[in-house]
């Protein structure tokens, strides 16, 4: 029987239920993000779901400049998760310019998205 939805909806449904889950390939054991139909490492279709550790390191970061009246500057970064996958996100709870490459961060769910705070 086919799964009830594609992997993208599966990811966001879990997130909406408070669970940050990523895929892991049953064939090559590598983790996969963003969610896919085929493993981008080995081509297998055997992608299962595991809870993400939520532990990560900032790989790169930028401050997007925005006028104060439009909400002010904000952070956009790339985080490498302990599982070896990378995702775009933001680091909250710290000024955008104080987010640094190499910073240890931990995941939380906010407004239906994964964001990070300093670990």
């Amino acid at each position: 029987m086919s799964p009830p939805s594609g992997p993208e909806k599966r990811f966001f449904d879990a997130l909406a239920a408070g669970r940050f889950e990523i895929q892991q390939c049953a064939a090559c054991a590598k983790h996969v993000f963003y969610p896919r139909v085929l493993c981008p490492h080995c081509g297998s279709g055997e992608l299962g779901w595991v809870a993400a550790s939520g532990r990560g390191t900032v790989y790169s970061t930028t401050v997007v400049r925005r006028k104060p009246g439009d909400g002010g500057d904000y952070n956009v970064c790339l985080v490498d998760l302990a599982e070896g996958v990378r995702m775009m996100s933001r680091v909250a709870g710290v000024a955008p310019q104080d987010v640094t490459i190499g910073m240890a961060v931990k995941a939380r769910i906010a407004e239906g998205l994964v964001e990070f705070t300093p670990a």
């Binding site: 993208e8 966001f12 993000f33 790169s60 997007v64 904000y74 775009m88 933001r90 490459i101």
Partner: peptide, 25 residues
């Protein structure tokens, strides 16, 4: 692009800025 757009990257500059920041680091 639901794994990038919700974080509001000001693209294309933000993507290239991330590359520049990493190269500098």
């Amino acid at each position: 692009q639901p794994f990038e757009h919700p974080y509001k990257p000001f693209n294309p500059p933000t993507s290239y800025a991330l590359a520049a920041a990493r190269h500098m680091h």
